[in-house]
């Protein structure tokens, strides 16, 4: 007779595992990846491959030579971080800068805290912000989105993002109507499909929302975070627009430009750095939405979602301690 195993209940386990979750996120990013390849061609492929490979290699090297612990690069978390980093940078960035960004992403933001599950901040965003501050020129000269196989319409290689145009215009004292007639400003269809300037992954709101719905369906993310971010941005931008429509653009513009969708769906929902219960997640989302729109409307940068997410990441432990899930059998005091 074979020896019996003794362990505590439960004796069965669901089919959830870390690898599955991580690869579900990867699959959810495929539409956005295809869109970026469509608009930026081989450059997009180069950036994504470099970023993913660099993240994998750095993680492997750190685990093998510095931590000297088990190698866990096949759990998919480094792949996710690599793709997210690639999504957050322009397609025409030099390769060595991607490597530097990946080193910060994996080395500083993830492994120095102890690896997967212990990082307080979203690693890809830390990498992105590091790159934005270190290489401001390269990180803000966005390549013109040019559909694959389409003839080149202009000779220009780079152009501003919609948000950049807006900020510049408002800064120069123009009214919204004057800004919107700029030929570089994308129209609504372009904004939905992603035919505009910007970083690789933030192009197409449709592709991002598709991936988001897939992840909600597979229970990898909760709807609370993205929805509360998007609603907050919409409401605050809407109020501003109602007060002064010539100074503040309509809220729908804010939803479909810049990194809002990418940040709300893929970055803010990062399991590790977001709060642990539903109430907390909503508070977290509202916080991100508020900071984002405040930076966009009144800050120096045209885009604020990365800073907003990183700032709220810092509040996550506090949110976890303050907001508790609804306990069974505890009647809230009236």
């Amino acid at each position: 007779m074979s020896t019996f195993t003794i362990s505590g209940s439960p004796h069965i386990h669901g089919d959830e595992n870390v690898k599955k979750i991580m690869y579900t996120v990867v699959y959810a990013m495929v539409p956005a990846m295809l869109v970026s390849v469509y608009f930026f061609g081989m450059d997009a492929l180069r950036v994504m491959l470099t970023s993913v490979l660099a993240c994998l290699v750095f993680e492997w090297a750190i685990q093998k030579y510095i931590i000297k612990g088990p190698i866990t690069i096949n759990d998919g978390s480094a792949v996710v971080a690599g793709i997210l980093l690639a999504f957050n940078i322009p397609a025409n960035i030099p390769t060595w800068m991607i490597l530097a960004g990946a080193l910060i992403t994996i080395g500083v933001a993830k492994m120095s805290f102890g690896g997967l599950g212990r990082n307080p901040f979203n690693p890809a965003l830390v990498g992105r912000v590091f790159m934005l501050i270190s290489f401001p020129v390269q990180m803000t000269s966005w390549p013109i989105a040019k559909p694959l196989f389409a003839p080149a319409l202009t000779d220009a290689l780079t152009g501003p993002t919609a948000l950049g145009l807006l900020k510049e215009g408002v800064g120069a004292g123009k009214t919204i109507d004057q800004i919107m007639v700029d030929p570089q400003m994308p129209d609504y269809i372009d904004r939905l499909t992603g035919h505009m300037g910007g970083s690789m992954g933030e192009m197409s709101a449709i592709a991002l929302i598709l991936g988001g719905i897939f992840m909600v369906w597979r229970k990898v993310i909760n709807w609370q975070v993205p929805v509360s971010i998007i609603l907050t941005v919409f409401v605050v931008a809407g109020i501003a627009h109602l007060v002064d429509p010539q100074h503040y653009i309509d809220p729908v513009f804010h939803l479909f430009t810049g990194g809002l969708m990418l940040g709300a769906i893929y970055m803010a929902t990062d399991m590790v750095s977001s709060p642990m219960n539903m109430t907390g997640k909503i508070v977290f989302g509202i916080g991100i939405g508020l900071i984002t729109i405040i930076i966009r409307l009144w800050g120096a940068y045209p885009e604020g979602i990365s800073f907003a997410i990183l700032i709220m990441n810092a509040f996550t432990p506090h949110i976890n301690n303050t907001f508790k899930p609804k306990r069974f059998g505890i009647v809230s005091k009236k």
Binding site: F4, T5, S7, H11, I12, H13, N17, V18, I21, T72, D75, S77, G114, G115, L116, G117, R118, N222, M271, V272, S273, S274, P275, M276, N277
Partner: peptide, 14 residues
């Protein structure tokens, strides 16, 4: 069926 799978660190998935 009776063996547990190897544990990983908590990814705070909630």
């Amino acid at each position: 069926e009776s063996k547990r799978q190897s544990t990983k660190s908590c990814i705070r998935c909630s």
